[in-house]
Design a protein around this nucleic acid. Structure first.
Lengths: 223, 223, 223, 223
DNA sequence: AATGAATGAGCCTTCATTCAT
DNA sequence: GATGAATGAAGGCTCATTCAT
């Protein structure tokens, strides 16, 4: 007899009735999602694989059907975390036809929708905490996320400068100025908020964008 | 002498009942310095006390003469790391008699001299990484470092606004804008540099100060 | 058909109640052959059932269609490994009509053909390695292989002594002398060869037989 | 208060009162002795380090103060097991001045005293069982034990042949004939006795020696 | 019959902590 | 004060066993 949905039914029981094939396909991302949460909460070393498994609703051994070791799970967390979203953003950039400042707004708030406001925002915190322990992961993150993310913004800035929409400026420094508050925001969300600091992300982001819009605009200088 | 010799009690038992303050005073800073370095390098959980002892040039057992546990060592690292410097800065602020912008410059570069450019700059990285595992440390850091640090800057800003040196602005946001790049700088120094990212701290700091000076000044732009 | 189809009972449940003999008959020898090889190579405890299944070209679950557990697989390996050959040898002994020394030669070289030179020779190595962990298997091996094997040789010796072909000798010691070099040979083949020791089995066996022929013969020496 | 020896006092308690320094020195051989027993009893893979530690009267962690891993413990067991005795035998050989057959008797019964009759006799069983899993240990055993052991016997045989005490014979085969029954004896002691086989080692060894004495003697051929 | 994903008990190994010297 | 041998709880990882498909 099939068990009808009961309020007391655990997620695990629900999963039990899922077809095998679908579970097999969905497993790795379920596991990395659980792992990401715990790695961000506790740090890599302090996270027990039992807890990862429990949060994903599987047994400890199941983790080893999909990942060779705790470290390879960590790498998968980083690899699956940001890159797909970045690829989507690159796609968006290529297809955009409006003004540069509109594009920048799209990127910033898209980032919040896809990353900054989701659990994926924990990845930068993880990288900050663990990159010294995982040099190859750090390298990967640099090549696949930092470089490509900066390139994304660089393209927007250059497009705006070419069209005369933005004033001429030092591009790399401008990228720093754009990214730093975003990074600060996720650090707040995942770390310093536990230091008692509070902030409203949406308002913060809006303020940040307005400052950028002013700072980048050609018309600012002659106001 | 605080503890008189008791025939029925060993030296060690006597030490046990000694107030913590007494032991804390005698605590060698070599131990916390070694611990700070390793906590920053590897994270709290991944740091072995053997390594801390080895780096400090003592045996593992010696650590327990001064700290009750690994966790209390961590707390001591945070406590001793920043607060003395902050007190010095507050002293400096009270005694300063020049312009507000000069004072701000003093604070920024003093921070670099005393904290940002030293091993103490690892403390913020440590707080970011570990605050969720140590809520009371996070609270301590918030109360003793973040609040007092922001108060320091707030005083400067208000002094400049009162004297007419600075234009009127939202103080708390301005504090964010002043602090964020400093935090980014230490994050770069201790984490993201292992992602291949490079930056010149001195130039970065100089640029940051100039932008601040412009942004805060009443004379900014043609407004 | 042993089990009539029952509407309320699945095929599998039916199988569960089937007598073990039935399942044992259907047991594919590929499985025990693969298991024997790996048990001899790695030892019982260090052999993984995944590897047994892989070497036999089936999935891991299939093993459990034929054997209740790893231990019962081990027992089947021993049971199927030697006894059938021993039965053949007993048959040969009963039908033989030539001289005793010819029969002994037949037995020795038959042993090499059927056991010593094949993978079955791993069984004694397995018994030596594992008998303390499997007292009942050791007992089985003693009763079904050692006792019967010695009886085989004993019959030959007694036949030769009765016919006057062999001189009178202590039969049990003679059996030891006949068997020990055979056992040494398989130990060499499966273990000590990995210690760098080398030996030519055929020549070794020939030498052994000649020594035996001399030693058993009434005509030995000038006595 | 020191605890006086009580019948119920465990070995562990006794060890507790031993001075630290002496324990540190004695530890490794205590541990390898316990490990040897269990490896021989159960096999390497089936032996749990908990049991080794318990048999040695220490905690599990203590093993890792002296050995890097289970495997390095295994290697130490083999290395410490036989070589010292072999060196003693080589010494004895160099100093001997009597007849070759007397020397051979000394070696055989000395082997029984030092190895064959002690727990060290388990080492050959261990090598037989595990050499395929530890090729470098097998190589070590070949170089340090097998080669040197055979050289020992070879020297005796050649000395006897040179002095005319022994008849001329194929030396390497004679070594095989001398060693094989010894190996069989320890295999019986540690493995096949659990197959129900029983034997009296002393009588067996005496018989073996007499056969050898007859077989090697020049006078045998003319009796 | 056969598969292979899932399980979880068990083992090797680490390391914070203790304590006799 | 200082040491470092010893401890044992905890965690990463393995693998015999089960069971839905």
């Amino acid at each position: 007899m099939q068990t009808p949905a009961l309020p007391t039914e655990s997620e695990k029981d629900a999963r039990r009735r899922m077809p095998r094939r679908r579970r097999k396909d969905a497993r790795p991302s379920e596991l990395t999602a659980a792992a990401l949460e715990l790695f961000v909460e506790k740090g890599f070393a302090a996270t027990r694989l039992d807890d990862v498994a429990a949060r994903a609703g599987v047994s400890k051994g199941t983790l080893y059907l999909y990942f060779d070791s705790k470290e390879s799970l960590f790498k998968a967390v980083i690899e699956e975390g940001i890159v797909p979203t970045l690829i989507a953003a690159e796609q968006q950039l290529a297809e955009h036809s409006g003004s540069a400042i509109e594009l920048l707004r799209k990127l910033l708030f898209g980032w919040w929708q896809q990353i900054g406001g989701t659990r994926l925002a924990g990845v930068p915190k993880l990288i900050i905490s663990e990159s010294r322990n995982f040099p190859d992961v750090a390298q990967y993150y640099h090549d696949k996320v930092i470089v490509r993310g900066r390139a994304l913004i660089r393209t927007v800035l250059q497009r705006g400068m070419v069209s005369g929409e933005f004033r001429t400026l030092d591009v790399e420094t401008a990228i720093d100025v754009i990214i730093a508050p975003l990074l600060m925001l996720v650090i707040w969300r995942f770390s310093l908020c536990f230091c008692g600091q509070e902030t409203d992300p949406a308002a913060y982001l809006e303020t940040h964008f307005e400052l950028l819009a002013n700072g980048l605009s050609r018309r600012q200088g002659i106001q």
